[in-house]
């Protein structure tokens, strides 16, 4: 109910953002029921025009573009989501450990992460993928680890502020273990900034995976994936066929939606009133 009340007071931009996300989530969950064909079914000629049978035309192999877009929503969003969750698990655990233990643990982790962050992520990911090869598991782990450096920074900073509170001191004196303190005292109080960050990081990871797939080093065909679909259909654009713009537009559509919500969240979190 609190959420509904919040929603009623939300600005128009946040509602638009929420609608944009819900459309994507709906497509990702109910994929097989919405999609008129199956993921890799060849249904007609190559790069057909939009028609009643093929809402967005067909792709470079004659598969239905609309169907591929819907399946792409499921694959791309799911992989980005799993990656972001993994990145948050690693980042938060390391960040909280650094903040509660302090001293050498903190120094070692923080300096190491400073150096990792000084290295451009895309280049780093490309190099690691060249070594471990391109598979979905490698993709998820590599991006999650690279992205967790940013989560580490934030969760360490937030935990530092909470760590000096009296109730944490009290828990320490009670003899609670460090794991208990992290989970029961620090985590609940660190939630709001971490949730806002989750939206931002999700956008970043999502764009990052799309970029890698676009470069042919991410999710591999025939799995429908938006970044890869732009790559596959790129040739069409020189014939004036707009097919590659659909998956690229879908990526932009979701990120704009998430950004609108994050903006609203940050606005609420900062305590500003209109």
């Amino acid at each position: 109910m609190a959420f509904l009340k919040l929603l009623r007071q939300s600005p128009l931009s946040a509602r638009i953002g929420l609608a944009m996300i819900l459309i994507n989530v709906f497509a990702a969950i109910f994929t097989p029921w919405i999609a008129p064909y199956t993921e890799t079914e060849v249904v007609g000629d190559v790069w057909l025009e939009m028609s009643r049978d093929h809402l967005l035309g067909t792709d470079h192999l004659g598969r239905d573009m609309f169907t591929r877009l819907i399946y792409g929503a499921r694959n791309t969003i799911a992989i980005a989501f799993i990656t972001t969750i993994l990145s948050f698990l690693v980042g938060i655990i390391c960040g909280f450990f650094a903040a509660t233990l302090g001293g050498w643990t903190d120094q070692f982790l923080s300096r190491f992460i400073d150096i990792l962050m000084a290295f451009p992520t895309l280049i780093f990911a490309l190099m690691v993928l060249s070594v471990v090869g391109t598979s979905i598991a490698a993709l998820i782990v590599v991006i999650a680890l690279l992205d967790s450096t940013r989560v580490y920074r934030l969760s360490r900073a937030v935990a530092m502020d909470i760590e000096v509170m009296e109730y944490v001191e009290a828990a320490r004196l009670r003899g609670e273990g460090i794991w208990w303190i992290m989970r029961r005292e620090i985590l609940p109080n660190a939630m709001p900034p971490l949730v806002a960050e989750f939206g931002l990081r999700f956008c970043f990871v999502f764009l990052f995976i799309a970029a890698l797939s676009f470069l042919g080093l991410g999710i591999q065909p025939p799995t429908a994936d938006w970044g890869g679909m732009v790559r596959e259909n790129a040739g069409a654009i020189t014939f004036g066929i707009l097919t590659p713009l659909f998956p690229a537009g879908a990526i932009a559509f979701l990120t704009v939606g998430v950004n609108l919500i994050v903006d609203w969240f940050l606005h609420i979190a900062s305590g500003l009133k209109d």
Binding site: C203, L207, A210, A211, F214, G227, V230, A234, I237, P244, L245, A248, G249, I251, A252, T255, V256, N259
Partner: peptide
Amino acid sequence: STISFPEFFVAY
């Protein structure tokens, strides 16, 4: 919005 767009979207 250009911040939210992937580079290749802008390019195409």
